[in-house]
C-alpha cells in the first residue's frame, strides 16, 4: 500500500513538468508584454524593454522554463510580475476562501444528495421520487452563474437577508455554497438512486431477505454499502473540480478566492502567477484523486486484496 502511494506521488512529477511547459507555452503565445501593462501607455520604450528584460520575459521560452523548474526545485515558485510578491504567498492568501467553499459545498452535496437518492430509490415511482428526480433534473440543467445571480436577486436584493458579495462572515458563504452544491447534489442524488436501484434488485439482497433481515438493515447493511462505492468516486471528482474551478461563482459573488486571482493574473499576463496557481490546482487535484482511490480501497474489500497481493 505504501509503495502504491509513493508511486502515485512520484507520478505527480511528470504531470507537473508537463503542465508547467504547457502553461508557459500558451502564455508565450498570447499577445502583449507585462511591462507595457505594468508601466502604462505613457512609459518610454526603453523603460518597457528594461523591465521586460528584468522580468525575464525576453528570454527564450525554454530558458524561462528551465529557470522556473530550477526555482521550483528550490521551493521558489517565482514572484508575481504584477505585485512583486512571491507567488506562493499570493496563492496561500487566497486559498482558504476556495478551500472553505469547496469543503462546505461537498459536505452540503453529500448531505442532500445521498439521502434523497436513497429515499427516491426505495420509494421508486412514488410522488416523493417524482418530485426529487424532477427537481434534480432542473438543478442539473441550470447554469450555475445564472442560479447564483437569481439567488442574489432574491435573497440579497429583494429580501435583504444575505450579503451579496465578499467573504467576511459565515453568512457570506451561504449563497455561494448553495449555488455550488445544488447542481452537484442533484447529480449525486441521481447517481445514488441509480446505484441503489441496481443493488435493490441484486441476488445478495434477496439472500439477506431470506435470512429474515428487516428493511432498515437491508438498506444500510446490504444495499447502501454496495451502492455508495461509485458515489464516493463521483464526490471525489466533484471535490477536485471545486478546488480548481469555482471561477464563475467566485466572480458572481466577488469572492477573493484562487480562481479570481488566476483570472486577474491571466489578464495582466502575469506568467509566474498563472503558472503557479495552475501548478497548485494540478497538485491539489492529483492529491484529491489519490485520497479518493485510497478511500475506495478502504471501503471496497475487492480492491483492498488486490493491492495487498500486489505487494
Amino acid at each position: 500500500m505504501l509503495k502504491y502511494i509513493l508511486r502515485r506521488l512520484l507520478l505527480l512529477i511528470p504531470i507537473l513538468l508537463g503542465v508547467i511547459l504547457l502553461i508557459m507555452f500558451i502564455m508565450d503565445l498570447t499577445p502583449g508584454d507585462p511591462a507595457t501593462l505594468l508601466l502604462g501607455i505613457n512609459a518610454t520604450p526603453e523603460a518597457i524593454e528594461e523591465l521586460n528584460d528584468e522580468l525575464g520575459f525576453n528570454d527564450p521560452l525554454l530558458v524561462q522554463y528551465a529557470d522556473y523548474i530550477i526555482g521550483a526545485l528550490h521551493g521558489d515558485l517565482g514572484t508575481s510580475w504584477q505585485t512583486s510578491r512571491p507567488v506562493f504567498g499570493e496563492i496561500m492568501s487566497r486559498f482558504p476562501v476556495t478551500l472553505k467553499l469547496a469543503v462546505f459545498s461537498i459536505i452540503v452535496t453529500a448531505i442532500i444528495g445521498i439521502p434523497l437518492g436513497i429515499i427516491s430509490a426505495i420509494k421508486k415511482y412514488s410522488v416523493l421520487d417524482m418530485v426529487c428526480t424532477s427537481v434534480a433534473m432542473i438543478f442539473t440543467s441550470l447554469p450555475r452563474f445564472w442560479l447564483g445571480m437569481m439567488l442574489i436577486l432574491l435573497f440579497s436584493v429583494q429580501l435583504g437577508w444575505l450579503p451579496t458579495n465578499g467573504v467576511g462572515t459565515w453568512k457570506h458563504y451561504i449563497l455561494p455554497v448553495f449555488t455550488l452544491a445544488a447542481p452537484t447534489a442533484a447529480k449525486i442524488m441521481r447517481l445514488t438512486r441509480t446505484t441503489m436501484l441496481e443493488t435493490i434488485r441484486s441476488d445478495y439482497v434477496r439472500t439477506a431477505r431470506s435470512k429474515g433481515a428487516g428493511e432498515n438493515r437491508i438498506i444500510v447493511h446490504h444495499e447502501l454499502k454496495n451502492a455508495i462505492l461509485p458515489v464516493v468516486t463521483s464526490l471525489g471528482i466533484e471535490f477536485g473540480q471545486l478546488l480548481g474551478g469555482a471561477i464563475l461563482i467566485e466572480t458572481v459573488f466577488s469572492m477573493q478566492g484562487i480562481s479570481t486571482l488566476m483570472i486577474t493574473a491571466i489578464r495582466m499576463k502575469d506568467t509566474p502567477l498563472v503558472t503557479g496557481s495552475i501548478v497548485f490546482f494540478a497538485t491539489m487535484v492529483c492529491i484529491t484523486m489519490l485520497i479518493i482511490d485510497l478511500l475506495y480501497t478502504a471501503i471496497d474489500p475487492r480492491l483492498r486484496t488486490k493491492y495487498t497481493k500486489a505487494k
Binding site: 434477496r206 439472500t207 431470506s210 435470512k211 474489500p301 475487492r302
Partner: peptide, 30 residues
C-alpha cells in the same frame, strides 16, 4: 420465519453473497 424456520439456498453462489461483507459476518447476521 425466514432464515429461522424456513430458509433458502440460492442457485448462483457468485451473486448471492454480499461482496462487501465478510463471509463470517454474513453467517453471523443470520
Amino acid at each position: 420465519i425466514r432464515g429461522a424456520s424456513i430458509s433458502m439456498i440460492f442457485q448462483d453462489p457468485m451473486t448471492s453473497l454480499n461482496p462487501v461483507n465478510t463471509v463470517g459476518d454474513q453467517i453471523y447476521e443470520s
